[in-house]
């Protein structure tokens, strides 16, 4: 299955606050590009607010009100910024959406890219838990193909720069591709520039191309 957007379950998990770190990062990245999903998400948050409002109110202990009122004096005012300073310096040629830059530590050009396969580099984001979710930025050199692979589990990819094509179509910046274990695909980066994308994999992908198959146990891809 493939769409250009994360499906409703993913958006709902983000809205409800139950999404994993990698999934939340992918959603925050995608909605930077996608007003449609941003709107869906806001609607889901409004539903969340209405559901919270509809809960049976819990009894609050007697002293709670006075305790909180006493804490108000001299309490700092955070203002409208949501405590994040505005983006000023933009470094490098490939600018990442803010959530992604904060998670990765820098814009794309400043990252410590590790070659994983010919024409493919990656940067792991966060700690990879064995058997668990893996979040990474991938850079596929212009015109190069990622070896054929399937997935034990699902993989979501959000394109940041450039684009790629696979059996299911073409993906450009902001587009999300979802692949599960039924899909054996071979993404090919556009010819004109490197393709950078965020990939969140539930379990490591499994290479299926003839040449790559034997590499599987060694390549943490």
């Amino acid at each position: 299955m493939s769409t250009r957007h994360p499906d409703d379950e993913i958006l709902l998990a983000y809205a409800a606050g139950t999404a994993s770190h990698g999934t939340a990062l992918l959603v925050a990245t995608h909605i930077t590009y996608c007003p449609l999903c941003r709107g869906k998400l806001q609607a889901m948050e409004q539903v969340g607010g209405a559901l919270m409002e509809a809960l049976e109110p819990a009894a609050v202990s007697a002293g709670a009100r006075d305790r909180v009122m006493a804490l108000l004096d001299g309490d700092p005012r955070l203002g409208t910024s949501d405590s994040r300073p505005p983006v000023t310096a933009v470094t490098g040629r490939t600018v990442l959406p803010r959530a992604l830059r904060e998670a990765a530590g820098s814009d794309a050009d400043g990252l410590a890219w590790q070659p994983v396969l010919s024409g493919v580099d990656q940067v792991l984001i966060g700690k990879a838990v064995p058997g668990g979710e893996r979040t990474r930025l991938m850079r596929i050199r212009a015109g190069r193909a990622v070896p054929r692979h399937t997935h034990r589990g699902s993989e979501m990819v959000c394109v940041i720069a450039g684009g790629f094509r696979d059996v299911l179509g073409h993906y450009g910046p902001g587009d999300v591709a979802v692949a599960d274990d039924a899909v054996d695909h071979q993404p090919v980066a556009d010819d004109d520039r490197d393709c950078i994308c965020l990939a969140v994999t539930e379990a490591p992908v499994r290479l299926t191309g003839r040449f790559w198959r034997w590499l599987n146990p060694f390549v943490q891809f």
């Binding site: 939340a24 590009y33 007003p35 941003r38 933009v90 990442l96 803010r98 904060e102």
Partner: peptide, 15 residues
């Protein structure tokens, strides 16, 4: 850190 959209991100595609 909790990944979150920054509504002031210059990368943001506006509504």
């Amino acid at each position: 850190n909790r990944p979150a959209l920054d509504p002031g991100d210059p990368m943001l595609v506006p509504d």
